[in-house]
Amino acid sequence: MVDPNSVNPVFESPITSTNSGSAGTSIGTSADQAALTLADESSLTKTLIRAEPRTKAERQLDVVFGASRLVDGVVISGQRPSEWLVIGEANDVSTFVDRIDREGHVSLVDHTHSRAMMRLTGLDASRVLEKVCSLDWSSEMTPNGAVVSASVAKVGCDIVRNDTFRHGSALASSAPTEVIPPSYWIACDRSFAQYLFDAILDAGQEFGLLPA
């Protein structure tokens, strides 16, 4: 018998099937070429930070509710009043989180396993979202960097729009004439992840959405 304690556990994404949607009507044949993609990014490290107003931690985070920013390789998302989600690679997140001042009423919860994440990218991304969510996805109402919580295909989700930056680094600046496609991080409770992934893929079929 193999000693189970000697086995190195490997993180498993809740999205186990990325092609369960029916065949897309896209012109592109593979996700590489597809202009509109849905990617599983569940394995990213996510730490939830709560800090009451006027704590040092709040000043360190320096992101208001509804906004996000990239700092030291992690994305800080102001997803509720006095509540932030820090997203990135494990080392970057832990480095950042370790620096957070814990004075006052400040708490941390590791959300890596609680929240699944997918990324929807492409010029038609907001048209896909219009089919599964009742919010206004125009750039005036939901600009690059915006953070909002809403029901997506009847699942409560936290959404970050970040066309020009990802965890790790800002995207290489595109040629000024090139249109940067919108890109959305959609985080949901892990248990809903496969359902939501399939539901978004299905809704995006008419625009040629493909799993990445």
Binding site: F65, R80, P81, V148, S149, A150, S151, G156
Partner: peptide, 13 residues
């Protein structure tokens, strides 16, 4: 009328 609301899908306040 004074009413209490809960922003269930949004800010949860």
């Amino acid at each position: 009328l004074r009413e209490t609301w809960y922003c269930r899908s949004g800010c949860r306040r």
